[in-house]
């Protein structure tokens, strides 16, 4: 199938998925979540005020009007204003996405490239002491909780050694750089363990294939085989693993943002959940769903680029 036709067809899947997501949001908000008006008005709220606020927020209208509002915002991306901060949600999203991405994107790139490089290296020395040591270190790193990484690094590298800022954030390049270095380092430390193990497994799957044996019998160097054949053939699981993580990069990392005072989308989402700020929760859910659909599509299209045997149907 033509790549354009496939893309259009897959893009149309957005419609039923967004309708489903809207339904789920509506259900969760109306039947599971608490009454937002008492949270929003605080401890002095009276029944009259709560009724007035319900009317103001449109919560006293019939369910199908409320559901329609969610559907409409899912397709127009007009999420209105936050109930708690009264800020325009679009501006909250744009001002939160950049700080989140200044940490997550460099960390993601460094972690991915470093992990693939290490995985290739230990595949080259598979079964040797280097391989075993790296696997041991990776498993150890995976066993440590993210909170431990954050607390220790903040205390040791930033406070004791003074190499980094303890916390904070400044808008604009290069002002933000000193503040994101340690969060990036921590992110890399937290993700490199599972990444290396995954990529190593993928590489080793390929290393034992017949075509590798054939290449070796032809006298090609191990280096050439790894880079020109093994890496290329291992790309499909790598792409799946890597690209599908991208939508979540926008959301940032909740704990890291919280400990380092980075005003990203992760902390914004948490505030919204705690404050029953439905419009913000709705916006984040819908955007995550859309981003997930888009990056799934990109993953599929990339398959055909890296492996001509893959056909889009």
């Amino acid at each position: 199938m033509n790549i354009y036709v496939y893309t259009i067809r897959r893009s149309l899947y957005v419609i039923p998925i967004l309708l489903g997501v809207s339904m789920m949001i509506f259900f969760l908000f109306n039947f599971i979540s608490g009454d937002p008006t008492s949270i929003l008005l605080g401890p002095h709220a009276t029944a009259v005020q709560m009724a007035e606020l319900r009317q103001e927020l449109g919560l006293d209208r019939a369910w199908y009007f409320q559901y329609w509002d969610i559907v409409k915002s899912a397709f127009t991306f007009d999420f209105g204003r936050s109930w708690t901060t009264k800020q325009q949600i679009s501006s909250m999203l744009s001002s939160g996405a950049i700080p989140s991405m200044t940490v997550s994107i460099p960390a993601f790139i460094i972690s991915t490239v470093l992990s693939i490089s290490i995985a290739l290296l230990i595949s080259f020395f598979r079964g040797g002491w280097l391989d075993k040591t790296v696997v041991f270190v990776c498993v150890t790193m995976m066993s440590i909780s993210s909170l431990a990484y954050i607390l220790f690094s903040q205390w040791f590298f930033a406070f004791k050694l003074g190499w980094f800022e303890i916390s904070g954030y400044e808008n604009g390049f290069p002002d933000f750089v000193p503040y994101v270095l340690l969060p990036i380092l921590i992110w890399v430390m937290m993700t490199i363990g599972p990444n290396v193990r995954f990529f190593r497994t993928v590489m080793l799957d390929e290393v034992y294939q017949d075509y590798v044996r054939t290449a070796r019998s032809k006298g090609l160097s191990e280096y050439y085989i790894l880079f020109k054949h093994v890496l290329k053939n291992a790309m499909i699981p790598i792409i799946t693993y890597v690209v599908i993580q991208i939508p979540f990069l926008i959301l940032g990392a909740l704990l890291t943002e919280s400990f380092f005072g980075i005003p990203g989308l992760g902390s914004m989402t948490l505030d919204a959940i705690n404050g029953n700020d439905f419009p913000v929760i709705k916006a984040m859910t819908i955007l995550t769903a859309v981003a997930y659909i888009i990056f799934s599509l990109i993953t599929d299209v990339l398959y055909t680029v890296v492996d001509p045997r893959v056909r889009l149907k």
């Binding site: 460094i110 490239v113 470093l114 490089s117 980094f164 290069p174 750089v177 270095l181 880079f227």
Partner: peptide, 25 residues
Amino acid sequence: MLKQINTLLVTTIFLFFLLGGCAKK
């Protein structure tokens, strides 16, 4: 290719840390 990416990455990290040292007093 991967070697080039790694060189680029190391340079970027170095520059990043260099800028990191320019924290405001």
